[in-house]
Computed example of a mutant assay.
Amino acid sequence: MYQARRPSRSEFLPIRGWRYHLRHWGTPEAGRPPLVLVHGWMDVAASWQFVVDAMREDRHIVAPDWRGYGDTTWNGAAPDSYWFPDYLGDLDALLDALAGEQPVDLVGHSMGGHVATLYAGARPQRIRRLVNLEGFGMPASPPEQAPKRYAQWLDEIRALRRGDMDLSDYADAEGVARRLMKTNPRLPPDKADWLARQWARPNAEGRWAILGDPAHKVTNAVLFRPEEAIEVYRRIAAPTLCVVASDDSLGLWWKGRYTLDEFRERIAHVPNLRHALIEDAGHMMHHDRPEALAALIEDFLRGG
Rank of each mutant, 00 (worst) to 15 (best):
L260W: 11
I297E: 00
L88I: 14
L160E: 06
L195D: 00
G135L: 07
L91Y: 06
G282T: 07
L91E: 01
E265W: 08
M111K: 03
D164W: 06
W153I: 00
L273Q: 02
G212D: 01
A99W: 08
V62S: 01
R59L: 13
G175R: 03
D80M: 10
P103Y: 09
H24E: 12
L37E: 06
I210K: 08
H109R: 02
A120S: 11
T240G: 11
P271A: 12
H269G: 01
R266N: 03
G137W: 07
E205S: 13
P189Q: 10
P185V: 05
L160W: 04
D86Q: 14
V115L: 13
P7M: 11
E57K: 10
I157C: 04
A63M: 07
L88C: 04
L250K: 05
H286M: 12
W25F: 08
E291P: 01
A78Y: 05
R201A: 13
P142M: 09
P226G: 01
Y119F: 15
L106R: 00
L94V: 05
S249H: 14
E262Q: 15
G68E: 03
A200G: 07
P103R: 09
A173I: 02
A146F: 03
Y258C: 08
D193Q: 15
G89F: 07
G282H: 04
D213H: 12
S10T: 13
R56W: 00
W66S: 00
P124F: 03
R123H: 14
S10E: 15
N184R: 11
L35Q: 06
F50R: 12
H60R: 04
R32Y: 06
W18V: 05
S47P: 06
R264W: 11
E57W: 02
H287C: 05
L301Y: 09
D261E: 15
Q125V: 06
L160N: 05
Q198M: 09
D155V: 00
I210Y: 06
G137M: 10
R264F: 14
F84E: 10
L98G: 06
W48K: 03
L154P: 00
R302I: 02
A77N: 10
R123A: 14
P202F: 11
P214H: 10
L106F: 01
R59P: 00
R56A: 14
D155T: 10
H275M: 14
S81Q: 13
D193V: 02
D86N: 14
P34H: 02
D248E: 10
D190G: 03
D247L: 13
Y233W: 13
